[in-house]
Design a protein around this nucleic acid. Structure first.
Lengths: 255, 255
DNA sequence: ACATGTTGTGCGTTATGCGCACAAGCGTCA
DNA sequence: TGACGCTTGTGCGCATAACGCACAACATGT
């Protein structure tokens, strides 16, 4: 059963190409011109133009001059997911409560292909560091505690392939580059039930992650050595009780 | 015999229909069947099926049994907007800081058609009430302080038409239903530079909103009479300084 | 059992989107 | 200034690709 026939009669190529146009606005650049879109999507300029014009017609894109940019309406699509999974009603309050108690920022994330996808984030006003990530942001799988914890929760059989497929893009000088060593760390995370990374994604920042459900993890971070080992321990315990509370709420079963 | 261009040659109908399928997942129901999609979009079942299958192929939809549901990947689309406008980096920290100082939840919103569209939300962990809204949630224009403040910032000429176009859906028994009276309140909000509503959207809750930029407002809410009039005053002043700080950051110029 | 609701899928038709090719702007260098 | 490259916008013929009817298989309730 071939997973995707390139010429499946049941797949609307025009629709897929249009979505590629929408995906081109990934935030790397705040605005794109038609030529940019055509380049990024590999489509003919005329095709890209039709896609962009259609998105404009639907209200997802706006055009000033020759620059196209996203409108806030794209948020409504995300809103559908967040509401369907009760993120605002059941998840966010739990995150906020524990973040306040711990004085740290807590992030809920899932795996999306070879990236970590941020689902929700609780903001502690006392939080010392702010990374500027939002729901919908994507992080690397291999060099974050969140990503490694996600991989630790998967079937160990396919782990090597998953690591090989994920892009090895070291973010700091301390990022591990040896895939075997990364696999070891993931294995340890599976055993321990949590994952800690140090300075692999942001220099001087220690990341902690625990599992919540299949393909759902919870994480936080703090400056290295701020409160020493006991600070990490306290944060870890806090995350674990938070995860258990989220499990009890049970809104995160389906991805 | 082309019947005088039934539709614009530059707009891809297939793409628009596919987006309609995606929009059908607005969170009202956590999952939809093919028949539901066809009904909600008014499309032929075969067309809806092609759209859903294409979305599945792209990873935005998943299917278990006969139920289709959104995957977290839709969040990446919103992430593009949030990153392009520096919401996470420049806006959220300001919101968090003021929310902590005020002990109240602060919401940033814009207008999207005849609805208020939530852009970002800062959560104070001490906040007494949580409404369960998230970025991407939509609220009525006429019965919220956010919505009325948005209308107050628009061209007064078209105000009547805007009010007539927006759905009059009273949410509480105290919701104003007289459009003329609503127009008066909006006019007052324009004069005062802020808008206060009481129990019109949620019973017993007072909402406050101030303008940040064209089509961008900031709001908060508190239980009626919690801290009396001086509580409202303090919150209002806090919102105004928060708005001014956001203006200085200047990331909210383009919608 | 029937009746009513699904879902999957062929297939002929033609509307529809594709991309070439032309036209019009914009800057640079001689 | 004019000729040059390198953009960008758009019309139009053609072939494809999407449409939606229609049928079959299946589930559910009366």
């Amino acid at each position: 059963m071939p997973p995707a026939d390139p010429q499946d009669r049941n797949i609307a190529a025009t629709f897929a190409k249009g979505m590629a146009v929408l995906e081109a606005f990934d935030g790397q650049a705040p605005a794109l011109t038609l030529a940019d879109i055509a380049r990024l999507t590999g489509q003919d300029r005329a095709t890209a133009r039709r896609g962009a014009l259609t998105l404009m017609h639907l209200g997802y894109l706006r055009q000033d001059g020759r620059q196209f940019s996203l409108t806030p309406r794209v948020l409504t699509l995300a809103g559908g997911f967040l509401r369907a999974h009760r993120i605002g009603r059941q998840v966010q309050p739990v995150l906020n409560h524990h973040a306040g108690a711990l004085g740290a920022e807590i992030t809920l994330a899932t795996g999306d292909g070879d990236r970590v996808l941020l689902l929700a984030q609780s903001t502690a006003h006392g939080g010392p560091v702010s990374y500027g990530f939002t729901p919908g942001s994507r992080l690397p799988l291999l060099h974050t505690s969140l990503g490694r914890m996600l991989l630790a929760g998967e079937d160990p059989e396919g782990l090597e392939a998953r690591i090989a497929a994920a892009p090895i893009a070291p973010h700091t000088e301390q990022s591990l580059t040896d895939t075997a060593e990364i696999a070891v760390r993931i294995g340890r995370a599976r055993q321990a039930g949590f994952c800690i990374t140090d300075s692999e994604f942001e220099p001087g920042i220690t990341g902690i992650a625990v599992a919540v459900a299949p393909n759902v993890v919870l994480g936080s971070s703090l400056p290295r050595g701020r409160d020493g080992a006991e600070g990490v321990d306290a944060l870890l315990r806090g995350l674990q009780t938070c995860a258990s509370e989220l499990r009890q709420a049970g809104a995160l079963s389906g991805l």
